[in-house]
Every structure is written in structure tokens, then in C-alpha cells.
């Protein structure tokens, strides 16, 4: 159990508590060069506890652990959960998209070829619910613990096995599940913060993506081959 003590996820849950200032502090590695941006960053970060629309406690813990493994905290950015990626996932799964909106859902449901694409009757929300149960069951069987309780090295190992498809989930395919998990994490990390992820525009700062308004007709000549200055990326909320 000793390992559990060092699990970032636990710390995070306990201290939901993570205040705006401390999230910003985690990000200072990127913005340290710009004191002005750092100030703005601290002001922009919400200090509220994450709450869930549809995620069960087990799902929330799984997605937090997955986000922090896929997007670990380092000198380039805060961790996935610090950036709000699980909140993004929760809202997406609760959204019309998560409920299978704009999706052809008539049967018969037949297992097709890879070229024929997704052929299950499950909506994205239903798919992730089933996937988390299958992933945790496999982790329990393999490591004796659910995914969120594994230490960082074992989490990396488990995700790698899913990515390669060598993790043999019971009645569920691990490889497409990993692809869906990776995709939704990337969306949460890089989408506009209006959706609950990419808090404090952490990924945009990391990349040097300026965000809005994205009107460059008068800048394309001046910045051809030169670094465009991105001190404070702008998001939809900044223009609303």
C-alpha cells in the first residue's frame, strides 16, 4: 500500500483543494519568462472543486489517473487532471455527442472489417462506461488493483499494453478503447477551455499557440520564418 501514498491522484482528490495559485505555480515553468503572463494566469484559474455530471466515482478516478499518465505533470505543463481533462471528459460524455447524437444507430449490428469503422451500438458514453469496467477488471486481474491505484510505472505499463492491444480485457477490445481514451484526452488538453479542459490554456502556452482571434492577413509577411510572440493565448471566453 505504500505506493498509494505517493499517488498524485490521491493528493489531488484530497486537496481538491488545489487552488488557482498552485495550479498556476505548476505552470510557471512555461510562463516564468513572462511575469505579466504569470500574473494573468493566476487570476484566470478557477479555485473550485471538480464535480461530475455523469461520471461515477470509479470512472472519475479512472479518468483522473489516465489523464495524469497520458499527460504527466512536468516542466512543460501541469498534469492532465490539473488541466481539467477529466472534467472535459465528463462533460463530453454527458453531451449530445456522448449520447450518440448525429450517429447512425440502426441495426443490424455486425462485426465488420477495420475499414468499415466503428460498428457497435454503444454511444460514446456507453462505450467508455463499459471500457472503464473492462480496463479496471483487467488491472485487478493483472496487478491486483484497479488502474487508479497503480503506481506511475505500472500505470504506464498498463496503458502501453492497452495501446498495443496485448491487454486482454474480458469481452472488450483494449486497443480501440485505448485509442478512444487517448483521443478524448488530447481533445480535452488542446480544445478551447470553454469545454472544461485546457485550464489556464496550459497546452496552448506549452505549444505557443496564440488562440483567438486568429486574424493574420496583416501578420503573415512580418512573421514568415519568425516566432510569433505568444505571451498570453486568447480563448473564446476572453472574447465573450
Amino acid at each position: 500500500m505504500a505506493n498509494d501514498e505517493s499517488i498524485p491522484r490521491r493528493d489531488f482528490l484530497k486537496g481538491a483543494s488545489l487552488t488557482g495559485a498552485s495550479v498556476a505555480a505548476a505552470a510557471t515553468g512555461l510562463v516564468a519568462c513572462s511575469p505579466k503572463a504569470e500574473t494573468a494566469a493566476s487570476q484566470a484559474t478557477p479555485a473550485t472543486q471538480d464535480t461530475w455530471l455523469v461520471l461515477t466515482p470509479e470512472e472519475a478516478e479512472f479518468f483522473i489517473a489516465a489523464a495524469d499518465t497520458i499527460i504527466p505533470k512536468d516542466e512543460l505543463s501541469p498534469s492532465g487532471s490539473e488541466c481539467g481533462v477529466p472534467v472535459f471528459i465528463d462533460r463530453q460524455l454527458a453531451s449530445a455527442w456522448g449520447g450518440g447524437d448525429r450517429m447512425y444507430r440502426a441495426g443490424p449490428f455486425v462485426k465488420g472489417t477495420p475499414e468499415q469503422g466503428y460498428q457497435l451500438s454503444l454511444t460514446p458514453h456507453q462505450y467508455f462506461v463499459a471500457g472503464v469496467i473492462a480496463a479496471n477488471a483487467w488491472c485487478e486481474k493483472t496487478y491486483g488493483k484497479t488502474f487508479d491505484r497503480l503506481d506511475q510505472a505500472k500505470r504506464n505499463e498498463a496503458l502501453t499494453a492497452m495501446e498495443k492491444g496485448t491487454a486482454e480485457f474480458d469481452g472488450f477490445e483494449s486497443k480501440p478503447f485505448f485509442t478512444a481514451l487517448l483521443t478524448i484526452n488530447m481533445e480535452g488538453f488542446f480544445a478551447d477551455p470553454i469545454y472544461g479542459g485546457n485550464r489556464n490554456k496550459a497546452s496552448w502556452r506549452m505549444l505557443g499557440f496564440p488562440g483567438l482571434p486568429a486574424i493574420y492577413a496583416d501578420k503573415i509577411d512580418a512573421y514568415r520564418g519568425k516566432r510569433y510572440p505568444v505571451t498570453e493565448p486568447q480563448s473564446i471566453a476572453d472574447f465573450s
Binding site: 504527466p72 496503458l159 499557440f209
Partner: peptide, 15 residues
């Protein structure tokens, strides 16, 4: 496609 090394490479090649 994920993890710290992915992040490092993403930032390295973004521009």
C-alpha cells in the same frame, strides 16, 4: 503518443 516524451517532442516540432 503520450507521456512526457510525447509532450517534449510535440513542443520541439510544433514550429
Amino acid at each position: 503518443s503520450w507521456g512526457s516524451e510525447w509532450k517534449k517532442q510535440t513542443v520541439k516540432w510544433y514550429y
